[in-house]
């Protein structure tokens, strides 16, 4: 394992609203290693997007982050930066790929200029040089006949092509960390695969690290090295992509996996997780997932579970891993995954 380029420690993000304080991120910690892809997975409202916005310093004005939270990027605490210092980080050291390519580009500006913008800002080069580099970037992200299209406006392009332009913008200043916030959610499935392959290829070329935010576990399997599962503003389980997919320990991860169709999903076996995520104005005592969890223990409604170590790389916050907990049998599909995990382990041994 290489060195972490980003360390998130005890991150809390609160939003002060008229109704009260929304605790959107509740004590999140994770590392991001150089050249790796970390997927953050969770349903709507789990805090994925707030995490990314915090990493870009782009939270709404009513957000407050306690002093003990730390975002260490190359040993520099990003949370202590002024707005001007943040502007040097954004697009330059940490860049972001947005979710919806149809609305992410300025409709009144030529695409070439939009790609050149971060270069002019961060490299201090002339508009002309930046445009020449923008052309290279357009070719790099696979835009055909880039010379002819550098002066196009966004409305002249399809969604897939626009997402390539958004990626080119993010890559323009050669950032060390790329945050991709559901970059394929708004695209057709066939285009999704193209964009994911492109991102993998570009990552190999530049050795940048990617934080991949998604609710789509199918995408995670092909992209990520490690996965963190978020629920109600917390990470509930994290591990390598194999550990999460084949040896999941948290009932919420089980639920997510069972609600994802795979090639051997039998008809009728696709299961939704019952209920809705809790209101983060007043997060419940204990395990926030307990009310939706058929495997919940009595202690879940009183005390929050700590992280239990499954392996050196795999941790899960569920009381089921406590040695005093009764042994429960997970759903059938999860048992199949566990069996597959045993095989994998056997092969390695």
């Amino acid at each position: 394992m290489s060195n972490p380029i980003l360390k998130v420690e005890n991150l809390h993000v609160n939003f002060n609203t008229y109704a009260g304080t929304v605790k959107a991120i509740r004590d999140v910690s994770f590392d991001l290693n150089e050249g790796e892809t970390l997927a953050i997975v969770g349903e709507s409202g789990s805090g994925k997007s707030v995490t990314t916005k915090t990493l870009m310093g782009l939270n709404a004005k009513n957000a407050s982050i306690p002093d003990n939270s730390r975002l260490l990027f190359k040993d520099k605490n990003l949370l202590a930066l002024t707005e001007e210092e943040w502007q040097h980080v954004r697009g330059n050291e940490i860049a972001m790929i947005f979710q919806d390519p149809m609305t992410s580009l300025d409709p009144t500006m030529k695409i070439g200029h939009q790609i050149a913008e971060p270069l002019v800002k961060h490299r201090g080069i002339s508009e002309k040089e930046a445009l020449a580099r923008a052309l290279e970037l357009m070719k790099g992200v696979g835009i055909p006949d880039a010379e002819e299209h550098i002066n196009d406006y966004p409305h002249q392009w399809s969604g897939g092509m626009r997402q390539r332009a958004v990626i080119a913008i993010a890559l323009a200043a050669d950032p060390e960390i790329l945050i991709a916030d559901e970059p394929t959610t708004a695209l057709d499935v066939t285009i999704q695969a193209q964009i994911l392959n492109l991102m993998k290829k570009l990552q190999k070329e530049s050795n940048s690290s990617i934080i991949f935010i998604t609710h789509d576990l199918g995408v995670v399997a092909g992209m990520a090295d490690r996965v963190a599962v978020m629920y109600a503003g917390k990470i509930v389980e994290y591990g390598t992509v194999d550990e999460i997919f084949f040896n999941p320990q948290h009932p919420y991860t089980w639920g997510l996996l069972n609600s994802m169709p795979t090639t051997d999903t039998e008809e009728g076996s696709l299961q939704a997780i019952p209920g809705t995520p809790p209101d983060l104005l007043e997060p419940p005592l204990g395990d926030a997932f307990a009310p939706r969890n058929v495997y919940a223990l009595a202690i879940d409604s009183r005390e929050e579970p700590p992280f239990f170590k499954v392996s050196d790389t795999h941790y899960a916050a569920t009381w089921l891993l406590d040695e005093r907990a009764p042994k429960v049998t997970p759903p059938k599909q999860i048992l199949t995954r566990w069996a597959h995990w045993q095989e994998l382990q056997g092969q390695e041994a």
Binding site: L58, Q87, R90, A95, F98, E117, K121
Partner: peptide
Amino acid sequence: SSDYVQLARAKGLS
């Protein structure tokens, strides 16, 4: 509050 302004912010523009 539009997406393209969010993107412009993410580029590091003032």
